[in-house]
């Protein structure tokens, strides 16, 4: 999946309105004589569903963009990422950032700005990890 999928373009082109059932109604079964207005209304309904799916994927696309994932042949860009995996991914990123902040704080001992940011980052990391664990535990 690439940017087109991020936009929902792949969905909109691969599942173009005239080649896929719109609004749950197979156009061929419906006779195929609908006028443009009704066709567009049905298409829009179908596209709204596609839109939601596309937006969902947008939020998870970053994971598939990680070079390590691509190199290792891990989950393909088009794969659906489980919600708990997304939460885990966010928790991991939060904790990596927290580590970076705290590493900087170590180099700036006694500087409140750094110390405070490190403490807040640690707390956020802990909460995010707990949320990911809760999700994984079901």
């Amino acid at each position: 999946m690439g940017a087109g999928a991020l936009l929902g373009l792949s969905a909109c082109t691969a599942k173009a309105p005239l080649t896929a059932p719109a609004g749950g109604v197979d156009e061929s079964a419906a006779g195929g004589d609908r006028d443009d207005a009704s066709l567009r209304a049905a298409d829009l309904s179908s596209l709204e569903l596609e839109l939601d799916r596309s937006w969902e994927e947008l939020r998870t696309l970053e994971d598939s963009r990680e070079p390590a994932s691509v190199e290792a042949g891990a989950a393909g860009p088009g794969d659906v990422v489980d919600r708990c995996e997304r939460i885990r991914g966010l928790a991991d990123r939060i904790c990596v950032l927290s580590d970076r902040v705290c590493a900087l704080a170590d180099e700036h001992p006694g500087e409140e700005r750094y110390t405070s940011a490190c403490g807040r980052g640690r707390d956020t990391c802990t909460q995010a990890t707990e949320a990911a664990d809760r999700c994984a535990a079901g």
Partner: peptide, 25 residues
């Protein structure tokens, strides 16, 4: 993806649909 030919529709409506789809999105 259903083949366009099954619908008995030509490429022009398909192309218009694609554009409409992207814009509607």
């Amino acid at each position: 993806r259903a083949p366009a030919t099954r619908r008995g529709k030509g490429l022009l409506p398909l192309a218009l649909g694609m554009v409409l789809g992207a814009l509607a999105m």
